[in-house]
Simulated assay, not measured.
Amino acid sequence: MAFSVNTNAGAMAALQSLNATNRSMETTQSRITTGLNVASTKDDSAKYTVAQTLRGDLGKLNAVTSSLNNAKSVTDVAVAGAEQISDLVNQMKSKALEASDEGLDVESRTAISNDLLALKKQIFTVIDGSDFNDVNLLKSGATAPATDGKVSALQSIAGDTLTVANQGLTTKAGTAMGASGTDTSITDLAGDTSATAAAAAKALGTKLDAFFKEVKTSLSDLGAASRQIEGQLNFNSNLNDVITTGVGNLVDADLAKESANLQALQVQQQLGVQALSIANQAPQTLLSLFR
């Protein structure tokens, strides 16, 4: 190799090697700082675009989960209300059967009638109060914000929907006991004669039996809907975990590996600096030829 003060090939080679080491260190430090092996499409276009698609799916899945949680809350409130109504109707059935005894005196039958009226008012209060976020699955004609008081929820990121129908218990209760705010069918139990009052009590008991069957059907429907929503929420949670793990497998950095690589690059950098220093001193040896 010729000796020249104009061109120092050794220094240029050492400088290129040092620059490559510095670039590798910048990449490694970026991975350690961000925790990502693929932080930009410049790192790996294929993996980055796939990861972005999966991140979009995660966003959609969060929206689905939020919708299902709202539907579950509405349904669970309706279930609680229907269960309470079921208990109250059972009490009314017992009171109606007690009032059907022709041997009761007027005072006793009147007391029973008052108890039935209080239970009836409580049932309508429960129906009206079984409301969540302006949706009532028990109240007939509860139209805000969903038509007919039903609730609909997103079921998947594909746009499938899950619907829980309104149970219309206001109308059904009115058929059995008279509309809310009226007490005609209840006060009939305290009639002028024992036979008339007993007959009214039996008629009320028959209507209550029919209403109780409708309440049981509503409980079954609402319970099934709640379980379906809960199952879908569990599936979405598992799916969220799987997608998150998949994104991590694509773009996350192996920090243990990057840490070891950083140690090696730091040694290479130090050696590169020393090699460049030696290469820069080489032309000075030419001065000895002119002494």
Rank of each mutant, 00 (worst) to 15 (best):
F3E: 06
S4N: 07
V5N: 09
N8M: 11
L15D: 08
S17H: 00
L18H: 00
E26H: 02
K42G: 10
L54I: 04
G56K: 03
G59E: 12
K60H: 09
N62M: 05
A63Y: 06
L68R: 03
V74S: 05
V74H: 05
A78F: 02
A80Q: 12
A82M: 10
A82N: 08
S86D: 15
D87Q: 12
D87L: 11
D87A: 14
V89C: 06
K95M: 13
A96G: 12
S100H: 05
D101H: 10
L104D: 10
D105V: 05
T110V: 07
I112Q: 12
D115W: 09
D131Y: 05
N133Q: 15
N136G: 06
P145F: 02
D148V: 06
L154F: 10
I157F: 02
Q167G: 05
K172S: 07
K172D: 06
K172R: 03
A173C: 06
G174R: 02
T175C: 00
T175A: 11
G181E: 01
G181W: 01
T182C: 00
D183G: 10
L189N: 14
A190W: 08
A195N: 10
A200S: 14
K202C: 04
L204P: 09
T206L: 07
T206G: 13
T206M: 02
K207N: 14
K207E: 14
G223N: 13
A225M: 03
G231M: 06
L233C: 07
V242C: 01
I243D: 12
G248P: 04
N249T: 11
N249S: 13
E258N: 11
N261R: 11
Q268F: 00
Q270G: 10
Q274W: 01
L276H: 04
L276S: 01
I278S: 00
I278Q: 02
A279F: 00
N280Q: 15
T285E: 11
R291P: 03
